[in-house]
Nucleic acid binder design. Structure first.
Lengths: 172, 172
DNA sequence: GTCTATATAATGATAGAC
DNA sequence: GTCTATCATTATATAGAC
């Protein structure tokens, strides 16, 4: 999926990589959508573990940004988002996880920011949305060789997050 | 492409919609990639006209944001970006236009911001990159029914742009 | 459970008539 | 230029042997 896109992930090819016949996959996952949903559930379960670990880290803001800028994970996330955009059957699954992930991030950011005089300039859910936007676009564009503005955007986000972290540490 | 994704755009289906045989398309565009590149060039040419119009508007900042949040155009742009990510043959074409679009935006933003005491908090190319990121993620997520944080992010960006516009108008 | 064989449909691309 | 007919490949999915 990472190398050739979601459309290249077919029952036959997954079966071949797994070393089984395609009919066996159909036995466990009747349709191709069922297989893709199973793959997504497996991935998102792993992602959730890593996200929670980041949010529980001593420096959650920095850890969250590191989580979001992991290129393999984010590229896969974008791929599934594109898939969900055109496959109604798995849309709900992707939307549900994305909303849950955002709510987890929002909860932690709220705890960090609301408890003191720290202000991020925007609400916690807004901050989560903005960080996701920038990391996704960095990964999408990098994939095709677009680079202008990337260093600047990365530096801007990181300095804003550092400022946020400092004021949070000063306040507690 | 908008409704079913780039993978659903085949030579045969384009021919059917156009009311010609698929071999005629192969006559003009030998390979499927050639056809997709031609489609992209047609689209990006139109986009460029509209982008330039926005940058020449009385209020370029507001017009640029309107251009970027046009959902049909941005959704198509994301689709081509995903396509380019997995089709080496058309990658260069997409990257070239994206870089050019960003440079045009950067030039206009520089003119607005550098000429006076106005500071956006980040460099012009950074601002262009951030706006693109947010608008793309708004459109991608909306497509699958994700909405949390959208209202907040939109309001945040728009108030930041309004602040920028006011200080720019005050300075000139 | 796991396989081979197969039905059906769609793909990119080409040959060759006109 | 534009078409019909076709090749080779791949896709999802099912039937049925073991």
């Amino acid at each position: 999926m990472l190398e050739e896109g979601y459309a290249a992930v077919t029952v036959r090819r997954v079966a071949k990589v797994a070393g089984v016949s395609s009919t066996l996959l159909h036995y466990y996952y009747p349709t191709a959508d069922d297989l893709l949903i199973a793959i997504y559930r497996h991935r998102s379960g792993q992602d959730l573990v890593q996200l929670q670990r980041a949010l529980d880290a001593p420096d959650p803001i920095c850890a969250l940004w590191a989580y979001q800028t992991d290129s393999a994970r984010t590229a896969l996330g974008v791929e599934f988002l594109a898939l969900a955009n055109h496959r109604k059957a798995i849309r709900g699954e992707i939307a549900r996880f994305a909303e849950y992930s955002r709510s987890l991030q929002t909860k932690t950011l709220s705890r960090l920011l609301d408890g003191s005089g720290v202000t991020a300039g925007c609400s916690p859910v807004c901050l989560s949305m903005l960080l996701t936007s920038v990391s996704r676009n960095l990964i999408m564009e990098s994939g095709v060789g677009i680079a202008s503005g990337h260093g600047e955007a990365r530096a801007y986000v990181e300095s804003a997050l550092a400022r946020l972290r400092r004021s949070w540490e000063r306040d507690r």
